[in-house]
């Protein structure tokens, strides 16, 4: 039998199964806590720090990420205080300054209340959320990619920078990457170095959602084989329609995208059964 605990999130009394995280519970009850690196069914690493909340213990507030915080009886969580909002805005500002041309990150930033970015923009491809790394490791047990290096040199890479044989080109990494959404070249254009905040998440547009669909509901969508099949077309569409040029803002560390359509239309790779799209491996939970 499942054990339940009661806790308070932003004043709302909630009954939640023991063992779940505060973030999961909040999402389930419609309390929107922004998040980026969290993906259901994958482990939580607390890397993006967007989902920080105040955990009130003995009258003292402790700031911690809700994705890694397990629910406990009598917990008091505040997810939307002024202090949290300010910290979250600063974190989102750091993120968007790093990857200004990702619409998903732009969306995250705008929704966290970033009005202006006070740092010089960097044209970076990756915000190191680790969604790709974890899906590769935990869902497919492939471990073809991983975080390499440390500090500012940290990057997602293959071993020795070469795609290993055990990478089945399943594409899960691209599917979950917040950067593979049609890029926006606005912020990096000279003279236009600001975020207009006008365009909504391309992700929510692509899947035909309402314009005001919150990006987290999309980014946070569960990852399952079922999903993969449904979204296969979307993914294909995205890949083909993506401008493949030197100015492409796709993460450089991923294998060349041209490989995809080729392997789909009955290429050698497909014949060898390397493509796991059409014959999904049953995930291990």
């Amino acid at each position: 039998m499942r054990k339940y605990v009661t806790l308070k999130i932003d004043g709302a009394g909630i009954r939640a199964p023991k063992g779940s995280s505060v973030l999961d519970v909040a999402i389930e009850y419609g309390i929107c806590i922004p998040h980026l690196c969290h993906v259901p069914n994958l482990s939580d690493i607390g890397a993006c720090r967007l989902c920080i909340v105040e955990n009130i213990v003995n009258g003292r507030s402790k700031i911690t990420t809700s994705c890694t915080l397990g629910v406990e009886e009598g917990m008091v969580i505040l997810s939307n205080t002024e202090r949290i909002k300010k910290l979250r805005r600063n974190i989102a500002e750091l993120l968007v300054a790093q990857a200004p041309n990702s619409r998903a990150i732009q969306d995250v930033a705008v929704r966290c209340g970033v009005k202006e970015v006070r740092y010089p923009f960097r044209n970076n491809d990756c915000v190191l959320c680790g969604r790709c790394v974890r899906v590769c490791e935990e869902m497919w047990q492939a471990r073809a990619i991983g975080f390499v290096g440390r500090g500012k040199d940290r990057r997602v890479d293959f071993p020795f920078g070469v795609r290993p044989d055990f990478c089945k080109k399943c594409g899960s990494c691209i599917y979950l990457c917040p950067m593979t959404i049609t890029p926006c070249d606005g912020p990096m254009k000279p003279g236009k170095e600001y975020l207009c905040g006008k365009c909504e998440s391309q992700l929510s547009m692509a899947s035909g959602a309402m314009e005001d669909t919150c990006v987290w509901c999309e980014l946070g969508k569960g990852f399952s084989v079922h999903d993969m099949v449904i979204n296969e077309r979307l993914l294909l569409f995205m890949m083909i329609s993506m401008p493949i040029s030197p100015s492409s803002t796709l993460p450089k560390h991923f294998f060349p995208l041209t490989a995809y359509p080729v392997s789909y239309s009955g290429s050698a790779a497909h014949d060898q059964g390397e493509n796991c799209f059409l014959r999904p491996i049953v995930p291990v939970f």
Binding site: A144, V148, R150, D157
Partner: peptide, 12 residues
């Protein structure tokens, strides 16, 4: 140990 882990440790 997975190859990526060895590579990561050597880089870290």
């Amino acid at each position: 140990v997975p190859l990526i882990e060895v590579y990561r440790v050597a880089n870290f």
